[in-house]
Design a protein around this nucleic acid. Structure first.
Lengths: 135, 135
DNA sequence: CTTGACTCTATAGTAACTATAGAGTTTAAA
DNA sequence: TTTAAACTCTATAGTTACTATAGAGTCAAG
């Protein structure tokens, strides 16, 4: 099948598919006489795998590693486990950061209300006042 | 003062300062005879303001808006409030997304343990098995 | 044959930095 | 005065994961 069909089957844009090829995530083993890329069912599966990993926020580099590991069926899968653990930790860390940020933003937001001028704005004052304290 | 001194005072890299100038967040009103940028205390304050906003994950575009608003002391500050509300909502949304992702990753992680081969790896199988179900 | 849809490669853009190259300026020490 | 190191400048490119566009080629149906 050609790239447009693959794109439809996998709900992935033609441009992204070409990008993944450039990034060595998906390869095109065949071309038509007119130089069109030709894909088989294995490519469909690989692209769906890639998309699933992207949905998990795994980076292209990590996905590349998983694809490499997948090519050694007899090898130990502890690398997969380790990658997943690291990834979970990273997500957890990011959650904590965002929770803190949200609280900070809420505090800041409460320092201002309607019917004020820029000059009286508690938010801007805090952002500016903090500077003086920092110095 | 010159750019290096400003960088030290604000804990901001020389390159980032130049980048902010290019992005219209900070302007250099003076240059030395040798074409070196010259900054005053107002620039220090403005850069600290920018950094504080960046720490709140506000985009450069949003910060640009705030700086513009700051230049109209008599105007209403409801735009500031609205921006903050929108930003808080975006952070909240992202937190929810990440919490869901973390749960999904944990479920996936539990499908595998040590001492398995790639072929037996529950994580990879799930990522690959899901494809078949999708079809 | 014509035309519209599809495909190709190349290039540039997004956001917020970050690094490097090569050239010019400044400053302090010899 | 000279020298050398530190600092500064502009231009360009890179990071990540896409996304868009231009101009040219291919294909299939009318």
């Amino acid at each position: 099948m050609k790239i447009g069909e693959l794109a439809k089957k996998t709900d992935c844009s033609v441009q992204t598919i070409r990008y993944y090829e450039k990034e060595q995530l998906l390869c095109t083993t065949q071309r038509s006489d007119g130089n069109f890329r030709l894909y088989d069912e294995a490519a469909v599966e690989q692209l769906l795998f890639i998309k699933l990993c992207r949905n998990l926020d795994l980076s292209l580099s990590e996905i590349r590693q998983l694809l490499t590991l997948k090519r050694s069926p007899g090898a130990q899968c502890d690398q997969v486990n380790r990658m997943m653990d690291t990834h979970i930790q990273q997500v957890e860390t990011r959650i904590q950061e965002l929770v803190q940020l949200r609280e900070h933003l809420k505090v800041l937001r409460r320092s201002c209300s309607s019917e004020r001028t820029i000059e009286q704005c508690g938010i801007l004052q805090t952002l500016t006042t903090n500077q003086h304290q920092k110095r």
